[in-house]
């Protein structure tokens, strides 16, 4: 499935297949066609960022969802996963939610609040700036966040 996305794109519209007919001019395929981002309005793409762990672009959307919805808490090598995100209304958070996870940001928030106030999971750590995501991921073993490139 190929999503051309801009910050303002609505998932609903994307999912209705509007873009099957409209050819993105420039398409950057992230990995093996798992998701594709067309750079139309914002000439950038959002990628998962795991610092010194190296590239995590091989994570599928399903795996990213498991991690960011706080269900998967362990990397395959046994290290604990630590997730860092930006505030709910940060443009990069909104893009990451919609373009990479394929969900609305409020779906993440409502899951995080539910696990937090029912004692059934640990929500991601919220930091204020993309630089801070970068720093915290770099200094935290098992850390993962996202970045714009």
């Amino acid at each position: 499935m190929c999503l051309r996305s801009t910050a303002g794109d609505r998932l609903g519209a994307v999912n209705r297949g509007r873009l099957l007919g409209s050819l993105p001019l420039r398409v950057c395929c992230a990995v093996l066609g798992l998701w594709c981002l067309g750079a139309s309005a914002a000439d950038s793409r959002v990628v998962p960022y795991a610092g010194s762990r190296g590239s995590v672009t091989f994570l599928t959307r399903t795996e990213l969802r498991d991690i960011f919805f706080a269900r998967q808490t362990k990397w395959p090598n046994g290290d604990p996963i630590r997730v860092f995100v930006l505030p709910d209304r940060h443009p990069l958070h909104i893009r990451f939610s919609k373009e990479l996870l394929g969900v609305y940001p409020y779906q993440l928030r409502s899951t995080w609040d539910r696990i937090l106030y029912s004692g059934t999971g640990v929500p991601p750590t919220v930091v204020n700036t993309p630089q801070e995501v970068h720093e915290r991921v770099d200094e935290t073993p098992g850390g993962i966040g996202y970045a714009e490139e």
Partner: peptide, 18 residues
């Protein structure tokens, strides 16, 4: 009013108290 502490002492083991 609520106050809670949550965390994973082991990667697959969650501790939570509120």
């Amino acid at each position: 009013l609520g106050l809670n502490v949550l965390g994973h002492p082991l990667p697959n083991l969650l501790f939570a108290v509120q």
